[in-house]
Structure formats: structure tokens, C-alpha cells
Design a protein around this nucleic acid. Structure first.
Length: 198
DNA sequence: TGCCCGATTAACT
DNA sequence: GTTAATCGGGCAA
């Protein structure tokens, strides 16, 4: 009689969600839920990249590594960072824009024991607070490069309610350092770095 | 072919 | 605050 209710964090995100300006999609992702094989949490920090600015991997045109960025919206672009870490991006805008959103931090909600084991650290704040960290916690690697975001192993749900957004400059760059294309949930304790107070 | 450096992290002092 | 770890992309030669 009582129907077991799967509590969805929000409505499923489709490819059309990503087929917009990367500067609209990026803040819209704050508060959305990202799961990989059922493990993940709420997105609390992202950065936008676009081929027209020199900080983007796509700035110098297509290569084997960044090919996915030049494809259609709604797919995962994954690259190796500093020879050590993996970083996860969502491709946005019509094919050829080579625009993407880097997922920088999650608030862990699903599969915490598994994430703790993968990370080897008990502190929930250190599970997904950084692009390399969250890829390790969700076990995202090159095998996910080019996969659609609206099909397993990915699951994405829109934010169920509005979120207060903080804006700042992107982290770890030497080029185009002044663009305010970093977005986060204001006051979140799961950011890779705090946003400077206004 | 060789060289430099990066959308990072953790373990140091 | 500093630095080692570690490797593929991109460019010069």
C-alpha cells in the first residue's frame, strides 16, 4: 500500500540542460546532485572554461586529448592533471564551442563509506573538496571520458531549490587569471577553497 | 626526440 | 609557507 518512495534530489538533467552558454550552466549546477555508480553528492563548486580564452585546454584547437570538448553538450571530458590526478568536466554549448564546466567540489551525500575507503581519509570534508579528490572518491578515470552524462554510470539531478551563489576568480591558473568564472555555494563547508568575503 | 610545464594534492618545515 | 610526486601534451629542433 505504502509505495516505497525513492527520494530524488531533483529532476534529471538532460543534454539540453548543457546546451547553453557555459556561463549559465556553471552556476545552475551549484546545488545539483552528481552520482557515479550511485556514489557522489551535491555540487558545491565549479569553474567555466571556453575555447576563446587562453586558460582553456581547447584554446589552441582540437587535439586527441581535448576532442570531447569540441563535441556536443552533455558529455564528460576527463583529463589527467599534473600526471597524478583526474579531473571531470561537463561539455556545454553546441558542438564546436569547446566549452566545459570543471567540477571542483561536492558535498558528499551518497556512498560515504565507499568514498572514505577510496580516499583513505575519514574526514568527510576531504572526500570531494577538490577536482582530483572528487574523481578519486567517485572513481572517475579516463574510461569515463566521452560518456554521456544522462546515462549510467552517471546520474545528474537538478537543484531542488534555489541556492545562494558565490562568484570568484578561477584557481590554479597562470592565464586569464582575472575572469570571475568560478562559482560555488555560498557558505558551503565543502569548497576546495573559500570564496573571499564581499 | 627532448624539454618544459600544468584547470593538483599531501606532506613537509 | 614550501615542495615532491609523476606523466602526457605541445612545441622547438
Amino acid at each position: 500500500m505504502h509505495k516505497p518512495q525513492i527520494k530524488k534530489p531533483g529532476k534529471n538533467l538532460t543534454k539540453s540542460f548543457f546546451n547553453r552558454s557555459v556561463l549559465e550552466v556553471a552556476p545552475d549546477l551549484i546545488g545539483a546532485t552528481l552520482l557515479v555508480d550511485g556514489v557522489g553528492g551535491r555540487i558545491v563548486e565549479v569553474e567555466a572554461y571556453h575555447h576563446t580564452e587562453p586558460a582553456a585546454h581547447s584554446y589552441n584547437g582540437p587535439t586527441p586529448r581535448n576532442a570531447v570538448m569540441f563535441g556536443p553538450a552533455g558529455y564528460a571530458y576527463i583529463y589527467r592533471s599534473y600526471g597524478i590526478h583526474w579531473c571531470l568536466n561537463f561539455v556545454c554549448e553546441p558542438a564546436g564551442s569547446a566549452a566545459a564546466v570543471l567540477i571542483r567540489a561536492l558535498e558528499p551525500t551518497e556512498g560515504l563509506p565507499l568514498m572514505r575507503r577510496r580516499r583513505g581519509l575519514p574526514d568527510p570534508r576531504l572526500l570531494c573538496s577538490g577536482p582530483g579528490r572528487l574523481c578519486e572518491a567517485l572513481r572517475v578515470t579516463a574510461v569515463h571520458n566521452g560518456l554521456a552524462l544522462d546515462a549510467p554510470p552517471f546520474a545528474l539531478f537538478a537543484k531542488p531549490e534555489p541556492v545562494e551563489i558565490a562568484v570568484g576568480v578561477r584557481i590554479g591558473l597562470t592565464k586569464a587569471v582575472d575572469k570571475p568564472w568560478r562559482y560555488g555555494e555560498k557558505g558551503s563547508r565543502f569548497l576546495s577553497k573559500p570564496f573571499p568575503e564581499t
